[in-house]
Design a protein around this nucleic acid. Sequence first.
RNA 1: CGCGGGGUGGAGCAGUGGCAGCUCGUCAGGCUCAUAACCUGAAGGUCGUAGGUUCGAAUCCUACCCCCGCAACCA
Length: 524
Amino acid sequence: MTNVYITTAIDYPNGPPHIGHSLEKIAADVVARYHRLRGDNTFFCMGLDENSQNVIAAAEASGVSARVWVDRMDEAFRLAWRKVECSYDRFIRTTEPAHFRASQELFRRAQAAGDIYKGNYSGYYCPNCNTFYTAEELTPHGTCPNHPTVKPDWLEEENYFFALSRYTERLTRHVEAHPDFIVPATWRAEILSTLRSGLRDFSVSRPVRNQKLVEGQPWGVPVPDDPEHVIYVWFDALTNYLTAAGFPDEPGRFQDTWPADAHVIGKDITRFHCLYWPAMLLSAGLPLPRSVAVHGFMTLEGQRISKTTGNTIDPVELVDAYGADALRFYLMRDISFERDGDFTRANLIQRYNADLANDLGNLLNRTVSMISRYFEGTVPAPAGELTGPDADVQRLAGAAGRLTAAGLERWDFDAALDGAWQLVRRANQYIDENEPWRLARDPALRPRLATVMYHAAEALRLLGIYLTPFIPTAAGQLRAQLGLPPLAPGAWRPEGGETAWGGLAPGTRVERARPIFPRIEVPG
RNA sequence: CGCGGGGUGGAGCAGUGGCAGCUCGUCAGGCUCAUAACCUGAAGGUCGUAGGUUCGAAUCCUACCCCCGCAACCA
């Protein structure tokens, strides 16, 4: 059995989740569900990046302690991901003791490899941003570019650094030798370009004395054997992928789980996952992840999503309004994974009505209705000679499975769903060409009627498998109406799975037809 | 000249040298099993701009314009 490990970026809990977060989570979940259906032993992980000064600031702004705040965010994020039906196996928080151990162990290994050294970090420090700026980055008046009222002071602090520059050569070779390491390819080109321009060492710690404390204690992972410093973002946040896999506490499980097959991330953190992270792993003597899948960002109704201007949507609200399947389907079908896209309610509703309600939902509804009406609710056995259209539906059914799988293998959700929808459309067309309502009027044509209804139902059964990763609830309802039990893991195995034509047993009792995707009526 | 991506019918996209395509939407017709759904057909594009290469350019080259992102911890 193949082990598959898929991660998503851990989110900053400086505010509740919004629609922008959910594209990545849903995309990763679709792929994770796909692998479970393929029979892979799948481990799917998501979580929160809690050890940040920004989190303390958010807590203070809300008038609660940092602990209370992160617990509250933890609940909010889990609720959102449950609502959109993310099937995570592990939800990791970087404040967990297990994660502290992982982070410190990775740091120690890098130290042992001679890649960690102490140096001075200096610049104009803006306490609001918690960021150092160069003189050129400040405004002409010497104020912070983000905070016009703040005049940053020159500050020098002692930091630990990681010797990223030593890895330029090895990273270049790795990226060049592994064309699938970064998908889509456009980001691979960008990373190679960055490598050509040379890498600089990066800071991996912050002195505790410059940090906000929580209950008198530093907030974050202490540097091993130097409690005056806490580990700064990279050796902390990125390490979550190891912690979740059992590093260093459960060597057996870690051995089976690591390396990750895919880190699913937003384009803003591409270089950290494609350069910093592999270098850290090389330093620690650990295998590198097999791929990094980079997605674009969404705008919301044409505007940049922004917590500060309030241009956000709560995914929970969308699920309550339209259902998880509608949201998942819309994001996968209408928003490009690779490029930036625009989220609009109007398009969501249009996609839902056109593809789910009209095409797929109605196909199921008319098929089940006719089986009820003409065959007393029992799937008939196909009979007589097969016609061209019959063969065509069977062929399209096979192609749909292959195209959907191929699309999912390369994070091309558009191609994946397009493959499935070729079958949806062909099946609707097939029913129209064969006019079962006309066949039903002539008892002599009953064998032909049986064949037609069988083909329609069997196409739907297969669609129910192929679409389960995208719309798990509706796919289950589809199966239920066809009289089938919930799908078992491994149902889509290439060998011994349930995707061969003819898997629907004649005699299966269908349920009463009920729309699984009621149309969303828009006023006006 | 910091780096990268993008500009194709109303919307979203495909198309790396050979009649400009797909889905949605729009319009017309058909059907009546079905969720006013489904099926068939039609209209709609000087492929960002200006040059160039070529028998032939959305596609290759040059210049320019516009949008977005990264660099710079907003997913």
